[in-house]
Design a protein around this nucleic acid. Structure first.
Lengths: 229, 229
DNA sequence: CGTGGCCTTGATAAAGTTCAAGAGCCGTGG
DNA sequence: CCACGGCTCTTGAACTTTATCAAGGCCACG
């Protein structure tokens, strides 16, 4: 697909005036990253942000002991690294390609000039940042107020709404990465999935496909109204 | 102070064109809240946001079991409730006055119209949201990757930088609220403060004043390079 | 068919929470 | 001015949840 056509499909760039698409196309360039390549590291100084066009990118924080917390996993059409553009400082977290990936890069200063010109673009960006804040709010809630089974239940329900057909869903990430999204470690995740299966809440094909067998109980679990035995 | 003069001191409204201050003043009105009053609740539909002018407001999430996680505590000059303005939906968390408080309320639609007219205002707002995202990023990091002593150490260091003179600092919140900021409970906080005191890292007057006696060790603790015994 | 990555399972340990009791402090009202 | 009641904070002991360490299984890919 032509890069300009692609830009028009990105939700961040919806409803702009026609001429601004040309301006956007004029300032960008594409960057490719092999699987496992580091796109940027926390504390790197930032001179722009990215939109994924192909592949998958994880945004994460890591501790000295090697544990990591994934903040987001982004796919095609989703912008990342934009916080640093508006704080004027360094990236608050690191980004790594978890599959061979392609991105469009938007240089900071040129992009800010465009934002000044088109109020729709700035409102779109405000909306993107607000949605991110909302997601972080609920990640904080999960980490602080829920136990791991509750977080997992909430995650499964969330995926089943966004990517699943009725009660079937398939994860497109490894269990290790899922653990890191949920703020735990693979061993713990494994045990809890086993418990959920034994208690008849879910079923799995051993691959990455799951079947929700008892949605109500999952909901109770996610809300803290129920415990696994 | 005149409300228009006050607006000009708020960082969100820096560097606007003169006439826009008049427009702002035209759409706002003030709202007062007694201590412990709920300003808004999660899931309330939002028709605007607030800027504190007096007092203190906490933004928090709470669990069915009654535990709560404080996301922010805001004082004069700081905006809150603005996420919902740009997502068009409900508030992602609740707000409560923790002291008698006064606020200015900015109605959503009128404010959005102003943002469309003044790019400086929208860039300021983008910067506010980005800074919030950055803080959330580090709260998530703390909750997921650090233990409570590390979070407490980081918090004390943070306060000593922002509000303290050299090694003395005073908290202006209760221990219960501090526990809720750190994602733990008062009992645990109490034990850890006792340990820190016993090990000579800090000292306290039993009120809300603390003395940092061994800053290097606190830093090590915050970075996970050291443990309490 | 062997090797490495990913996942599972078990035993053990650590960190934090819960429950319960009591100490210190403060404002109110007698 | 003192006593009371209600807070907040502290401390102890038991318990729960999760992490750590270690071993072994499974599977895909060369």
């Amino acid at each position: 697909m032509d890069i300009k056509d692609f830009i028009e499909t990105i939700s961040l760039f919806q409803n702009l005036e026609k001429k601004n698409y040309d301006d956007l196309a004029a300032i960008i360039h594409s960057k490719k990253f092999k699987k496992n390549a580091i796109i940027f590291s926390e504390y790197d100084s930032a001179d722009g942000f990215y939109v994924a066009t192909l592949g998958r990118v994880k945004i994460f924080k890591s501790s000295p002991e090697g544990k990591e917390q994934i903040l987001h996993i982004f796919g095609p059409g989703e912008p990342f690294g934009e916080i640093a553009v508006f704080t004027g400082k360094s990236f608050p977290a690191s980004a790594q390609a978890i599959a061979d990936s392609e991105t469009i890069f938007f240089p900071k200063n040129e992009f800010i000039n465009l934002i000044k010109k088109d109020p729709t673009l700035s409102l779109n960006m405000l909306s993107v940042l607000s949605l991110r804040l909302k997601r972080f709010t609920s990640l904080i809630e999960d980490l602080s107020l829920k136990e791991v089974p509750g977080r997992l239940a909430a995650y499964l329900l969330y995926i089943s709404e966004s990517k699943g057909s009725k009660d079937e869903l398939s994860l497109d990430i490894s269990k290790g990465q899922l653990a890191s999204i949920l703020g735990t470690i693979p061993e713990t995740l494994s045990r809890i999935l086993a418990k959920m299966t034994k208690e008849g809440l879910i079923d799995s094909d051993g691959k990455r496909n799951y079947l929700i067998k008892d949605r109500d109980s999952l909901i109770d679990l996610a809300e803290g109204e129920r415990k696994l035995v």
